[in-house]
Design a protein around this nucleic acid. Structure first.
Lengths: 165, 165
DNA sequence: ATCCAACTTCAAGCCCGCTTCAGGTCAAGG
DNA sequence: CCTTGACCTGAAGCGGGCTTGAAGTTGGAT
């Protein structure tokens, strides 16, 4: 099982097997998410490990990481070997938290919605479906929990000068 | 409580109270998400109802709707009055489904991750953390459930000619 | 009457994650 | 050898959701 020629995949083969377009693979490579060697004729040849890295990238995207974040995360995993359980554990537990947070937010949203449906609100006089100050914006994308207070009640619900969502 | 002058908000006031930038409000208006009247000097004056509509937009975004979808949804709600329970119910139940789907996907992801952590895999020999054909791509954004079969096992795991994500 | 912050419009720019295009090169089968 | 399809690069384009900039106008306070 010494690395033989046939371990090296062309970009087309990698595309087929990963389900990504070749353009996406070149793009990923330009970002340093995957790496290739070149033939004498300057064509890319990918190690099988690239498939693993791509799987990682796709999974990470689902968890909501940007490609830049993925790059950082990948930097903590071995380049050409399968990660050890401990490599993997540190990464995966971060993801767990992300996922938990996302689920919690969605559930909160769902609960609020249910309340609104029940009360037939959005009448906006004390409906929960409102978040005047948009406080959560600073907590990052997707982090705005909605719906806090009623703007019809007070004159200056705003907190700071930062109006930029 | 007849609609008085002071019910009309300037774009700056609306920005403060909604937490959005004025540029975003103009943008929303250009998309038909909110509406204003104009002063003799051509400045926008928003009815209070705009706050409600903005709250709706932000909430909808959280649920994953594009602004175009929001526009469609808003078209089913009354322009200047609070929606009735039935108006609201039809819209909200759609959201419920979206939310439920998103939660289900996240939980599936979480389960897979947990499995991977347990087995210390990503060794890619029979790890669940892989989805060669990426079948779910056609099901829309966010719909890819991950991780199905192992590319190291067969030569042509691909299903059709569609390699695009 | 004057001032100045807040408003106006329109066009262009930005970020992300790619795709598409143009113009050329490589490599494997006949 | 020749063809053909896969590959190469760099630049530009796209869609979504805004922001920024320039150049000009309004309106409320003094």
């Amino acid at each position: 099982m010494t690395p033989s020629r046939h371990d090296r995949l062309t970009i087309g083969q990698l595309a087929e097997r990963s389900g990504l377009a070749t353009s996406a693979l070149r793009y990923y490579e330009s970002l340093g998410l995957i790496h290739s060697e070149r033939t004498t004729g300057n064509q890319r040849r990918y190690p099988r490990a690239a498939l693993r890295r791509i799987a990682f990238v796709r999974a990470a995207q689902q968890v909501g990481l940007s490609l830049e974040e993925v790059r950082t995360a990948l930097a903590r995993l071995p380049e050409d070997r399968a990660p050890t359980p401990r490599d993997w554990h540190s990464v995966a537990s971060t993801w767990q938290h992300r996922i938990d947070r996302q689920i919690a937010e969605l559930q909160m949203m769902k609960a609020k919605l249910t309340g609104c449906i029940g009360c037939g609100c959005l009448s906006m006089s004390r409906c929960a479906l409102y978040n005047a100050g948009d406080r959560a914006a600073a907590a990052g994308p997707g982090a705005r929990y909605l719906l806090t207070r009623d703007p019809d009640d007070g004159p200056e619900p705003v907190v700071g000068p930062e109006r930029r969502l």
